[in-house]
């Protein structure tokens, strides 16, 4: 028996909006500690990892570990029927081939349930070890989204370079070039507006903007984004989900021609 009640149902709606274009089908894994997902995009270039810890749910019951295969497009269709203020409860019986999403309006005057068919998905689960990164940049997520969107109108790839001067996002295309430098800035009114750079050594890596723009769809989940960079390792673009967990995206740097 599985029953997960999330008072802030909009979080789950935002999670689906963030990942549905990158991943078609995925197994959601539920255990005593939380609700999680790890999936690759269809070309096996990018990886997404989601964690929603049990303590973030108002009610969390998961009697045994369960993996539920879902088509994210279909799941998103169902979650779109929930209001932004609705409480969302996920329910599944042991051995069932369906999951039920229950939506309750805040004043309990409307209750809806949507039952979705589960699917068998063969997926590989990758082990991601803890790693030391050469540079970790934390910046406003909206700023990062804006930069990726702006640069993608000029080029296909972004070079992210971190030096003690700041973090530079560069691209080039047929019409010209662009460079955007964000300097460390901690003298802001709100901590989420800060740009903070932790650098052990300078790093400069090239990434496909198409994927970066896809990751930026998680922007509504968090005011800040953390970008962890190391040569020879995939970048980790992390959006923390307040009090609950995170969505992390992994993407390998492009090989220089």
């Amino acid at each position: 028996m599985l029953e997960l009640r999330l008072v802030q149902g909009s979080l789950l709606k935002k999670v689906l909006e963030a990942i549905k274009d990158l991943v078609n089908d995925a197994n959601f894994d539920c255990s005593a500690t939380g609700f999680s997902l790890q999936a690759m995009d269809s070309s096996h270039v990018a990886l997404v990892a989601l964690l929603l810890r049990n303590e973030g749910f108002e009610h969390y019951r998961c009697d045994r570990n369960i993996s539920m295969g879902m088509n994210l497009g279909n799941m998103n269709k169902m979650l779109k029927c929930a209001g932004n203020d609705d409480i969302i409860t996920l329910k599944a019986d042991d051995g069932s081939d369906t999951v039920t999403f229950m939506f309750e309006s805040p004043n309990q005057d409307k209750i809806a349930d949507f039952e979705m068919k589960l699917m068998d998905i063969d997926s590989e689960h990758l082990g991601i070890p803890e790693a030391e990164y050469h540079a970790i940049v934390r910046m406003p997520s909206a700023e990062f989204a804006r930069i990726c969107k702006d640069l993608s109108s000029i080029g296909d790839t972004v070079v992210i370079s971190v030096t003690k001067e700041g973090v530079k996002f560069s691209t080039k295309g047929d019409i010209g070039t662009a460079n955007i430098v964000c300097r460390q800035n901690t003298t802001v009114d709100k901590p989420e507006e800060a740009t903070v750079i932790e650098m052990k050594e300078p790093v400069s890596l090239t990434f496909a903007l198409r994927y970066m723009n896809s990751f930026a769809k998680a922007t509504p989940l968090s005011h800040t984004v953390t970008i962890s960079l190391s040569s020879e390792l995939p970048v980790v673009v992390e959006y923390k989900i307040e009090d609950m967990g995170y969505v992390r995206f992994y993407l390998a740097p492009k090989i220089e021609e």
Binding site: M40, S43, H44, V45, A46, L47, E124, H125, L126, G127, I128, P129, A208, L233, P234, Y250, L251, A252, P253, K254, I255, E256, E257
Partner: peptide, 14 residues
């Protein structure tokens, strides 16, 4: 995808 390593090549399958 040109010059784009797969994510598989960095992490072991569990």
């Amino acid at each position: 995808i040109e010059n784009q390593p797969l994510i598989h090549s960095f992490y072991m399958v569990n």
